[in-house]
Design a protein around this nucleic acid. Structure first.
Lengths: 153, 153
DNA sequence: GTGATTGCAAACTATTTGCAGCTCA
DNA sequence: TGAGCTGCAAATAGTTTGCAATCAC
């Protein structure tokens, strides 16, 4: 995939590089949107992005936001996912390790984990099927067996 | 979760049971839609379902189709997923072994696989976190590296 | 009979696009 | 200067909903 982006300035540099290479332009709006999406950690939706972006630049509209996200995805700065229904969620790839999710269906607790055995196996399976892996989504669902499950919700 | 559905008639029975229990009604349309979604194997989108359903009943519209799919999901006969962008894809849970998915984001091809190493590892990870696993969802995304990717659409 | 269901059309949500004016290189 | 970019509004795609007619029980 892409080399890991360690910091905000790494990401902005990568963006600027891509933009220049492609004969595009580095605009105020693109910079603001990139900064916001990196600063907001976790899986944000378009509305949260829009609100935060507009705090910094009242004129930026959804069109520019979507167009810029598309650009940021091409550069590898941002990933997007669909959690079931509803709007896509965006997450910056900057200084964030990859993680999978373990979810308790009783109490709603979410544990993030990472497992090299599974990661490696996935790559092998993909290769065997002539597919070059770009990313994946793994959710394990179950129920807490210790006393910590408070049956919330 | 639910007990496995071995056949079409199992599924129709389950549907009828759920429908009766809930004070709903077993209609011609619901039966047709359930049959079609079970007969069409694999991950079909709403358009494919619509076309096939209308071959059998020219009057069924999208509204009924969507409403019935929602019902079938509640009964556990059908699962739905979003592969990146675009429309949801539906799959019946009848007489199918568990499988995970490998998706080409260029051509939309979906390869199903099953891997004992990953399955086993998942159980271990869950146990280590005091969670008893009930099910999981694993999607690997990438791009075809052989000639088979026709970059459809 | 009567309450659930259907089919149509209209509404809605998330996202994309056309275009006139603006801006960065 | 001028090709790319923006912001608005309008268009689109997928899905949901309101409602009068219809159907299952």
């Amino acid at each position: 995939m892409t080399q890991p982006l360690q910091s905000m300035s790494d990401a902005l540099t990568a963006l600027e590089h891509h933009v220049r290479q492609s004969g595009l332009r580095m605009t105020r709006q693109r910079k603001v949107i990139a900064e916001v999406i990196i600063e907001l950690e976790g899986h944000v939706n378009i509305e949260q992005l829009y609100d935060e972006v507009r705090k910094r630049d009242k004129n930026i509209g959804y069109a520019t936001l979507y167009r810029t996200i598309k650009l940021l995805r091409e550069v590898g700065i941002v990933s997007s996912t669909q959690f079931g229904e509803g709007p896509a969620r965006y997450e910056s790839n900057v200084a964030r390790d990859h993680h999978d999710h373990l979810v308790c269906l009783k109490c709603g607790k979410v544990i993030e984990f990472e497992d090299d055995v599974i990661e490696q196996r996935q790559i092998e399976i993909a290769e065997r099927n002539n597919i070059k892996l770009t990313h994946h989504s793994l959710y394990l669902y179950g129920e807490c067996t210790d006393g910590t499950c408070d049956k919330a919700e």
